[in-house]
Design a protein around this nucleic acid. Sequence first.
DNA 1: CCCGCGACTTAACTCAGGTGAATGTCTCCG
DNA 2: CGGAGACATTCACCTGAGTTAAGTCGCGGG
Lengths: 259, 259
Amino acid sequence: MAEDDRAPHDGSQAHGPLLRKLSRIIELSNAETSCLQALHSNTVTFEPGQDILEEGRKIEQAYIQIDGWAYRYKTLLDGRRQIMNFVLPGDMSGIYGGIRVEADESVAAHTRVKCHSFDPVDLIELFGNCPKVGVAISWLVGRQDAIMSEQVLRVGRRTAYERTGHLILELLNRLRHTGDAESRSFELPITQELLADCLGLSVVHVNRTLRKLRENGIAHVKENRILIDDLERLINVTEFDGGYLEPHKLPPKVDQALN
Amino acid sequence: MAEDDRAPHDGSQAHGPLLRKLSRIIELSNAETSCLQALHSNTVTFEPGQDILEEGRKIEQAYIQIDGWAYRYKTLLDGRRQIMNFVLPGDMSGIYGGIRVEADESVAAHTRVKCHSFDPVDLIELFGNCPKVGVAISWLVGRQDAIMSEQVLRVGRRTAYERTGHLILELLNRLRHTGDAESRSFELPITQELLADCLGLSVVHVNRTLRKLRENGIAHVKENRILIDDLERLINVTEFDGGYLEPHKLPPKVDQALN
DNA sequence: CCCGCGACTTAACTCAGGTGAATGTCTCCG
DNA sequence: CGGAGACATTCACCTGAGTTAAGTCGCGGG
């Protein structure tokens, strides 16, 4: 799987998706970059279906995802499952390992997943030694927060139709930030069941909903790829505002505080 | 521990609810405590209904809540509203102010709310100067994360009945950590409409659900207070496991890394 | 004492979305 | 070629939760 094939994106592709993301919000010096590089020394691969972290288990390792789709989830005793969110290239798992010991959620690989692994305690040290990097990572945490918050709104108050469309747009935007999506389509290597568990719907209803999106000429799935046919209408229908996903330079005041 | 485990506290005793919470998970030196005290110099009061932060607006101040109930929420254009979570004494708002500039959610006071306010950029500096405090605050962030995650599961996969019961238990436990709840009851100064918007239900259905809880002898509301009549059954029905809310000492390895 | 208001209750009806089951399609494999 | 799995798709039916529309209760004001 060739690493960065497309991506009309600029940026230093050599350092992997995490550094690519971070370099958009913060000017990193060489020293800081190599601080971050220290977390990139190990590589692990997980096979489809394998658990990366398990709810209630001690977090031994933290991970930076390089490639593939994973998802964070929880289950109830009778098997109902809720996916909190998908974990995409450039995202991290297990970063609370040093602080919260046991995982609150499970994380599983859906496709084959490649990531870097490191000791979560290193991250804590890094916060002390390299505050600027700490801030950059806090930005990521805050973004994840915003995504979760959107997820609550989606599942709690949007209709199935809106939910589905909104998630599609969120994924499109997230993937575009790492160069893993074109302007109106992207690879969606997941089953409708997974989608259902993310949206809080049944598989059957996801299917119905996708059909309606197709019939309305808004979006359709073809060969594991989702194609958005009428982006403007989709944005409208779902009231999508991607602001919560956008990177942005830190305000100068903060930059200053860090020196 | 000589903990004041009951309610008549007025929020000003000891060092306030935030320090009380933090001191359970980390041994704070005098220096560190006074670092944190620096965030406690200003006090502000918000009246019921007033917005503390507004979605999309620049975050000017961050807050440590001392007293009262607030809530974080989002709305859709047609008025549908989803409450992400309640903000209780000891909780913070706007901490991403230095990093993410615009608020992703609104926060509003439901009762009269008293809090300390500070410049969110100070928090960033504090992370650099006082890593141990940074870790303690990260613990809080992680806990909020876990709460959100529970919220997604609740709204996405639990029935109305389970949802309601589960939220009651979550609130009970959170309030107990600051001494604002007895062992089986607590002050619930909110309307059913608010509850509905938190649970992703209609007011009417919340009402029905509360009735069912009452009829089943599990819990009931009386004079703005919720009383749990059968705690064990409630825990069972809702599959409640409060682990995600519990404070715990940091592992020694981490403590070491911080010195 | 009456009025208005906001919150809580309840009942009757509707509907979005869940369930169960059958069928279709593809791919892998012996 | 035939059979087994894993997903996707549909249909027919059911139900949990939303909606609408009345009440009720308490409270503060005039």
